[in-house]
């Protein structure tokens, strides 16, 4: 039962990711990415982290991919263009990088097979919204503030760029 519950979303996530890469149509790619994100959200849920599940859905599925779709549809850029302008090393580099990561994963598993499903202290409600907030605003306050500052900078940048244009 556990294996089934984990296996189905994991498989769906992998299929979604691969199909996203292979799809020739940008809208199809975005939809496969949506599938992938939704499956990963379900994995979060299985890890007893409903807050991450909701956040994943709101931020990635609800906002980012909608934005992707919006831009693709607005520009009519869904058809695959000739990829001559792309860096010729990009594909090969990505391939090699992926292989490296896969090998690394296998090595980790082979070296210490017992510890790979890292056991987290899953006491009751360890990923509840209150606990996440406590961690964010005490232990990890500085990175949190830096991240919000970066976001604010991006926001102001958009406003400035827009002003200059008009």
């Amino acid at each position: 039962m556990d294996l089934l519950l984990f296996g189905i979303p994991a498989l769906v996530a992998i299929i979604g990711a691969i199909a996203m890469l292979l799809s020739r149509n940008a809208v199809h790619s975005a939809l496969y990415l949506l599938l992938n994100f939704a499956a990963i959200a379900v994995l979060y849920l299985l890890l007893q982290a409903p807050f991450l599940f909701a956040t994943q859905l709101i931020v990635y599925a609800g906002a980012i991919i909608v934005l992707f779709l919006f831009v693709v549809m607005l520009l009519g850029a869904e058809r695959d263009e000739e990829t001559t302008h792309a860096n010729p090393w990009q594909n090969r580099g990505a391939f090699v990088g992926g292989i490296l990561l896969l090998v690394e994963l296998c090595m980790l598993y082979v070296r210490n097979p017992g510890t790979i499903p890292v056991s987290v202290d899953m006491n009751n409600g360890f990923a509840a919204p209150a606990e996440v907030a406590k961690a964010l605003f005490t232990t990890h306050l500085l990175p949190f503030e830096i991240a919000s500052f970066v976001l604010l900078t991006a926001l102001i940048g958009v406003v400035v760029l827009h002003q200059r244009r008009s």
Binding site: A54, A63, A128, P129
Partner: peptide, 12 residues
Amino acid sequence: DVGVLYLLAVTS
């Protein structure tokens, strides 16, 4: 325990 966030997520 994240009922309200679930509502927002599904709406979006």
